Simulated assay, not measured.
Amino acid sequence: MIRFLLRFFGVWVLAGGFVALVLDGVRSIAASRLLYTPLGDAWAAASATGLGQALGGTDLPGGSWRSLITPLLEAPLAAVLVVLGILLILLGRKRA
């Protein structure tokens, strides 16, 4: 049952990554330059309070959390979703 759920959510996350890739491609073609949606912007649009809590609510010393999470938040949304979807699908695959 857990493997099924992992594969199910993996396919949906992968589909979301494909949709984000298509939207970024359309925006890039319209602007005649490469544009992409950063993960942080998409997260802020979906839930600004959740992003603020994630950035400020950790107990790691010296701002190390912010130095770890900042590159991830600047990564393209499509790439993050595709990688996450593939990982979920691989975790949920049947063993040989």
Rank of each mutant, 00 (worst) to 15 (best):
V11W: 15
D59E: 14
A48T: 12
S32C: 09
G56E: 09
L77V: 01
L23C: 14
V13Y: 03
A48P: 15
L90H: 06
L73P: 02
L68C: 07
V82Q: 00
S64M: 08
L88S: 00
W65T: 08
A31L: 14
D41T: 14
W12C: 14
A96T: 12
L68I: 11
V82A: 06
P76G: 01
A75D: 09
W65S: 02
V13M: 03
I89M: 09
I29S: 10
L84H: 02
Q53H: 15
L87P: 00
L21G: 10
G25C: 04
F4V: 13
T58V: 08
R66N: 07
G85N: 00
F9H: 13
G10T: 06
G63N: 05
S47L: 11
S64H: 07
P38M: 03
A30R: 06
S32A: 12
G40I: 12
G16I: 02
D59S: 10
V82N: 01
A15V: 13
L77W: 00
P61N: 06
T58C: 07
L81H: 02
F4H: 14
P76M: 03
I29F: 15
P71S: 09
V11I: 15
A42I: 03
A42T: 00
V13H: 03
D59A: 15
P71L: 08
I69E: 00
L91M: 12
A54L: 14
S67H: 09
R66L: 08
A46E: 09
A44H: 10
T37C: 04
L34W: 12
R7D: 03
G57K: 00
L68M: 12
G40V: 11
I2W: 13
A48D: 11
I86T: 00
A15D: 07
A54T: 05
F8Y: 15
L6F: 05
M1N: 07
G50M: 01
I29Q: 14
L5K: 05
R93L: 05
V26F: 13
R93K: 03
V80G: 00
L51S: 05
A15R: 08
V82M: 04
I86K: 01
K94C: 07
A15M: 13
D41N: 14
L6E: 04
W65H: 11
L72P: 03
T49C: 08
A54N: 04
A15Y: 12
F18T: 13
I89W: 01
W65P: 03
R33L: 11
E74H: 05
Y36R: 06
R95V: 05
T49R: 11
L84Q: 03
G85S: 02
S32K: 09
S47A: 14
L91R: 11
L73N: 02
R7P: 01
L90Q: 08
A15P: 07
A31N: 12
L88P: 00
R95W: 03
D24M: 13
V11S: 12
L34F: 12
A45M: 14
G40N: 09
G63S: 06
W65I: 10
L39K: 05
I2L: 15
A46W: 09
F8N: 06
A45F: 15
A75Q: 11
L23P: 05
A54P: 01
